[in-house]
Simulated assay, not measured.
Amino acid sequence: MKGQEWYQADDVAQEYDDKRFSGGGRLIDRREKQAVLSALGPVEGREILEVACGTGRFTVMLADQGADIVGLDISSAMLSQGREKAADADVSENVSFMLGDAGRLPFPDDHFDAVFAMRFFHLADTPVTFLRELKRVAREQVFFDTFRRPSMRVLYNWALPMGSRLYSQRDVRSLLADAGLELAHESHDFVFPYGFYRSLPGAVAKPFRAVDEAVGKTAAGDAVASVSYWDARGGE
């Protein structure tokens, strides 16, 4: 798994949200949460697993909406941040945080209504192995995102501390087939990559986001997007 030691560092966990989701990064956070909520639909009473939950920004959001949710991550430092968020939001009774390996999920088959993973597959060295595990423990739904190839993300991919795996649409469709999943819905976004937005103050980032969304609505929008969201179901 790329970047495993980097993500487990205490200082990375403490600074993770501030570095990625402040300033222009708030636009990314808002869009990602919208994507998760749109895919999972009403979550009240549903049993959900988030793989690679990090600091718990999606976990806590879904717990606040009534989901019975487990957040799993390889980083105890990230999980500590998640527990603090859950306590601050008064949703600790609805969420459990667990230390674990996404390649060997500690749950029986068909244990959750839905399983999702955000900001995960760009680090996966053997993505089909992880995707099969997500499918194994999901009764109904598997949702995840990927970074697209080709896209503007390649311009700064080399600068990341652990690199990043990029996927074409064909790559993901093949991956889904190999994992025994059927694609229910896909969407694509962010012509300007995440790193671009994070480098800007919020007020400066908003006009660029408006242009980004306008391009995304054109016929060429999907072809130039840097992020894809995939909503899948278990095949027969």
Rank of each mutant, 00 (worst) to 15 (best):
R57M: 14
H122T: 09
A117D: 00
A89T: 11
V142T: 02
P106S: 04
E32K: 10
R139L: 01
V51T: 04
G45K: 03
F116M: 04
F116W: 00
M98S: 12
D110A: 12
S76Y: 02
E84L: 11
A63C: 07
S76Q: 15
L123G: 05
R30S: 14
R136G: 05
L131E: 05
R46T: 11
G45H: 01
R104I: 00
F121M: 04
T129A: 12
S76D: 10
Q141R: 15
D73H: 09
D113M: 01
P106A: 04
M61A: 11
A77H: 13
E133C: 10
A67P: 13
L131A: 07
V128Q: 10
I48S: 00
E133Y: 01
S75F: 07
F112P: 11
E44G: 05
G41D: 03
G56S: 12
L49P: 05
V43K: 01
S38H: 14
Q34C: 10
G41W: 00
R139W: 02
I74T: 15
F143P: 03
L105M: 01
G66N: 06
L131S: 01
G45M: 03
L40T: 09
M118N: 05
A114R: 02
V70F: 08
K85N: 09
L72F: 05
A35L: 15
V36D: 07
V70P: 01
L99A: 07
M78W: 07
E133F: 11
R20W: 12
T129R: 14
E32H: 11
E133T: 00
A138E: 03
L72C: 11
K135F: 02
V70T: 02
E50M: 03
P42R: 02
G100K: 01
G25Y: 13
A114N: 07
V128F: 05
A77C: 14
